[in-house]
Simulated assay, not measured.
Amino acid sequence: MKVSNPILKEAQAKMTKSEEALQRELGNIRAGRANASLLSRINVEYYGVETPLNQMAQISVPEARVLLVTPYDKSVLKDVERAILASDLGISPANDGSAIRLVIPQLTEERRKELAKQVKATSENGKIAVRNIRRDMMDQLKKSEKDGELNEDQLHDLEEQAQKVTDASIKSIDQITADKEKEILEG
């Protein structure tokens, strides 16, 4: 939806960022399928510096439930393996001397339902963020009217636009959530 008011534009940009943040956070939830974003939070000590794994290794998905981590520098293979073991992934790495394989275990029905609940809770936090942005936007619009920058009709029109922007963002969050739940439950 195209908006022209600067207050609405700023709020719309913030809402889009909230949607993107939700998508990133949901990407970290393991759905029984191999996904390179599962390793996005893992850092490896490389020459005394904590370095993100994805900057020092190629991460590929050769099969649906397998992640292949191939370090650019083979001398850090043991360090990468140690970092994966120390992470909260709960997956045991298999080191073949040149790369590390991570086999994502099949999820139980109970675990799928737990993950679906986690997705819903994370989604609700995204919606709360969007509603907070909407509240701030409405406050700014009312302040603009109070300061004489807007008349009552303009305020009413902008409030309607603000609601449409908010509804579109909530709908987008619902779609992101539905896609992730489907991925988890079908796994």
Rank of each mutant, 00 (worst) to 15 (best):
L102V: 00
D73E: 14
V69I: 11
I128V: 14
R112D: 04
D147A: 15
T51K: 01
I91F: 15
R131M: 02
I133P: 12
A86H: 08
E50Y: 01
A129W: 06
Q106E: 09
N151E: 13
P52K: 08
E109T: 05
V44I: 04
K146A: 11
N43A: 10
V66M: 05
A57E: 04
V80L: 12
K113P: 08
D147N: 14
L67W: 05
E114F: 03
V119N: 13
V49L: 12
S92C: 03
L89A: 11
G90S: 10
P105C: 02
A83P: 10
G97A: 06
P71C: 14
K146F: 02
N43D: 07
L141R: 11
G48W: 09
Y72A: 00
G148D: 11
D136T: 11
A64M: 11
T166E: 09
A94K: 15
M138K: 15
A168R: 14
P52T: 02
M56R: 01
L53E: 03
S98L: 13
Q161M: 12
Q163P: 01
L102H: 08
K120Q: 08
V69L: 13
P62A: 10
G90T: 10
L89V: 05
R111M: 09
S123D: 12
K146G: 07
A64Q: 14
E81I: 00
R131C: 05
L150M: 12
R135H: 14
V103W: 11
V49W: 01
K78E: 07
P71Q: 15
I42A: 08
L67M: 10
V44K: 04
I29Q: 08
T108E: 10
R41Q: 05
A83F: 09
E159L: 09
A83N: 09
N95P: 01
S40V: 03
A83Q: 01
Q23I: 00
A168Y: 06
A168V: 11
T122L: 15
